[in-house]
């Protein structure tokens, strides 16, 4: 049994202990590490406090009931992010509040997947404008841009979250950036 101080334990150490003992302490450690992140993400995507609260509860239940199935191929934080993101997207689909984009896996071949590489304008957007623009683009585009620029996830990690190929993710990011620029121009650069 690992009796290290909770702060020095990695997520995987705590998960192993929780699976073995089902102890409330280990539940508490994992919960305290991720609850604010999950709740904030739900709030950002669902834009409703009650829905975010319910979603956070269900997401944590899902996480703890499926902990033994976590295969350690990705970081635990990426796995948590993946469950959170997919839960919120499913919720929005059920509520039909968002028109979802048809799978980006289609027609990817032959298209220019390479990122333009010039993110300067996106990175330097003034924060209030950026918030406004992100709230006006489809939620999947917002999520993929936040994964790339806020969480700084790699393309491989983002592909795990979405369950899509790396090529599809590159295309998705490129389209999301293009939509962000278009909305920004329409809002702030036209008279």
């Amino acid at each position: 049994m690992n009796k290290q101080h909770p702060r020095t334990l990695t997520d995987n150490d705590v998960i192993d202990r929780f699976i073995e003992t089902q102890s409330q302490d280990d539940f508490g450690i994992l919960y305290s590490r991720y609850s604010n992140k999950v709740y904030s993400k739900c709030l950002s995507l669902l834009k409703n406090e009650v829905a975010a609260q319910d979603a956070t509860q269900e997401i944590f239940l899902k996480i703890f009931l499926n902990l033994a199935n976590f295969n350690r191929k990705s970081r635990f934080s990426t796995w948590v992010y993946s469950i959170t993101y997919n839960f919120c997207i499913d919720y929005l689909r059920r509520k039909k509040k968002e028109r979802m984009i048809v799978s980006d896996d289609q027609n990817v071949e032959g298209q220019d997947l390479e990122d333009d590489g010039d993110d300067k304008d996106l990175l330097e957007m003034e924060i209030d404008r950026l918030k406004t623009v992100l709230d006006l683009i489809p939620v999947e585009d917002k999520a993929v841009l936040l994964m790339k620029y806020r969480e700084e996830l790699s393309i491989r990690e983002i592909s795990h979250v979405f369950g899509k190929t790396e090529s599809a993710i590159k295309m998705k990011i490129k389209r999301a950036k293009s939509k962000t620029r278009t909305v920004y121009k329409n809002l702030y650069e036209t008279k």
Binding site: N36, Y39, S40, S44, I127, L146, R150
Partner: peptide
């Protein structure tokens, strides 16, 4: 600005 675009809230 991207780091601050989605503030972290305390879960109830």
């Amino acid at each position: 600005n991207w780091k601050n675009v989605e503030p972290e809230f305390e879960a109830p």
